[in-house]
Amino acid sequence: MKLTHLILLAALATSVYAAPQSFDFKDPKGVNNAVFNLDAPLESVNGSANGITGTVSFDPENPEATTGKIVVAAESLTVPNPMQKEHLHGPNWLDVAKYPEITFEAKSLANVKTDANATTADVTGTFSLHGVSKDITVPIKLTYLKDKLSARVPNLKGDLLVIRASFMINREDFNIQKGQYEDKVSPTINLSLSIAGASVAQ
């Protein structure tokens, strides 16, 4: 009887003190990406960025406590037209030399729903772009892939966390050519993030 109690106590202690895992989003495979789309009446701008880093603290037993920061290197934003890319990176638009990072720092999660290994939630955090920081709420999907790291990176054991998010921002909120060129460059920017982070087993 005492042994059973001890085992139960140990199991309880383990679950209570299970530390959240830290997932590193610097992807060795290079598939992590952020896609952006601006659909203006005269012109559509589509591109992506793959210079993504950051860490997210995630506990599969307590996804509500998820926090972390994702960083996109502004220099990695790419569009297929070289002149558009030059303008996009230039001082009149994103000014990547002055503002080299686009970041999102997650502070809290709400409306958390977990089904098997997938969790959906509304994450509130600070989005920083072009030197302006603004609190926004974004719907996200977190998929926890236990012991799947070795399937992706041989010789490494651990877990994967896939984050997907699609949301919209207004460029005028971030002082990017406020009220200018709206017929050619949409004032709203559609963003879609698909990233995977790894937590290496100790």
Partner: peptide, 18 residues
């Protein structure tokens, strides 16, 4: 355009890399 997107599916994560 001087470049085109190439999408590759990562079978483990299901992410479409660009």
């Amino acid at each position: 355009k001087t470049s085109v997107e190439v999408k590759t599916l990562d079978p483990v994560t299901g992410i479409e890399g660009i």
